[in-house]
Amino acid sequence: MEQTLNTKDFDFDLPEELIAQTPVEPRDTSRLLILDKKTGELEHKHFYNIIEYLKPGDCLILNDSRVLPARIYGIKEGTGARVEFLLLAAKGDDVWEVLAGPGKRAKPGNRFSFGDGLMTAEVLEIMEGGNRLVKFDYQGNFYAVLDQIGQMPLPPYIKEKLQDKERYQTVYSREVGSAAAPTAGLHFTNELLAKIKEKGIRVGYVTLHVGLGTFRPVSVDKITDHKMHSEHYWMPQETADLINETKKNGGRVISVGTTSCRTIESVAKKEGCLKESGGFTDIFIYPGYEFQVLDGLITNFHLPESTLIMLVSALAGREHVLNAYRVAVQDKYRFFSFGDAMLIY
């Protein structure tokens, strides 16, 4: 039975040199591996060919979350010791939960200065697990200041410095709040989206703020023992109506990224139908899951033994997915956030 799968059943060999360090230009020239979820058949294309696989009457669901430049470097007042903060969650009233490094420099009452004094911070308390609650002080708009002084919180496997911060944002990002980009969307250009709409494919948006838990490895043997992280989502009524209409008319609902997929499936599960909905989701999709809404998925290549490769396997079957990954490794596709893409349909 697929449901009794272990984490090691989702392992594959990935040479380190296939982990993409920089994005390709233009965005839509990355490679695209097409996987037929029923037959397992594969085709090799470029991302701009995606339009050939979308039909009038289909809809694309995109996650419009925008990444916070959440990594800030500063100095401790009094000693000048260097410190790094990673902003994790807004708690209201300019108080944030942060990951501080080195932790021993960030005790309650300690004060720090960032961006030559553009922003200062005081540690209020140490939380269970070691994160800090910190209150920030600044002039003007918090996000505008953060944009000036912050750096993108790139995943740990990307060692190169990002030259252009916007390359870790989708061209349609609007709602600030993610700790990591919904990377399947990084391949779209405004021109490609315009062509897709011209062909009669409708586009809808959801928001799911990606948490750092997305990079947390599965550390249990049995996948059913894994505890998923929780992330905030929002589905507007407009998007719910679009999906319902698409389904009613026999079109396909294709999610751009696992985050959009998890949002629409969470709403369907929680509400019993698709309607305006918001909240937190910790939905864990793995083989054996029956999709309520999703017909197809555009996604990047994921880490071995991750919840993301499990989700993809739930849609296309573990054997088909692992075979596609073997072929992708042989053909030197680029992996992870700045890597190439797959269309599963």
Rank of each mutant, 00 (worst) to 15 (best):
D241C: 06
D93T: 10
M235T: 02
T258M: 02
T299H: 04
Y333V: 10
I344F: 04
L162D: 15
D331S: 10
E125I: 12
V312Y: 06
E25L: 15
Y172S: 11
Y286I: 13
I254Y: 03
K135P: 12
Q21P: 08
Q169L: 03
C261M: 13
Y345E: 13
Q292A: 10
Y168A: 03
D225W: 09
G150I: 02
K135C: 13
R111P: 05
R82K: 14
N141R: 13
I19W: 01
F336K: 05
P23C: 05
G296L: 03
G288V: 09
G129N: 07
G40Q: 06
L343D: 02
L62T: 03
V312A: 11
G78I: 07
L42H: 03
V267Y: 01
D13M: 14
A184P: 01
I126H: 04
R174E: 01
I158V: 15
S266D: 03
Q163E: 14
L33P: 13
E52G: 13
V95R: 14
T7K: 14
L162W: 09
F301N: 02
F47I: 07
V218I: 10
G101F: 15
R174P: 08
K76T: 12
F12Q: 07
W96G: 10
Y325Q: 07
T7L: 07
A81T: 09
K222S: 10
W234R: 12
L54E: 04
I283W: 09
I283K: 09
E16R: 15
Y48Q: 07
G272W: 05
S277R: 03
G103C: 13
T258V: 04
S260M: 04
G200E: 08
E231V: 02
E271L: 10
V98I: 14
T79W: 04
N249E: 11
W96Q: 12
R202F: 05
K269V: 13
G78V: 14
H229F: 04
L242F: 09
V256S: 06
A100G: 07
E97L: 12
L33R: 11
E319V: 06
P69T: 03
L193I: 09
D221Y: 13
K248M: 10
R111K: 12
G140R: 11
M235N: 01
N300R: 04
G272R: 07
A184E: 00
R216N: 11
L62G: 02
F85T: 00
L274M: 01
I75P: 09
G213D: 08
E319T: 08
V95K: 10
G204P: 01
R31H: 07
T259Y: 00
S260Q: 05
T239N: 05
R167F: 13
Q292N: 12
D94H: 15
R216T: 12
K8Y: 11
K8R: 15
L192A: 05
I264T: 06
L242G: 06
K38A: 13
A121R: 00
V95W: 10
D295H: 05
I254N: 03
E238H: 08
D116W: 12
W234C: 10
L33T: 08
E245T: 15
L308T: 01
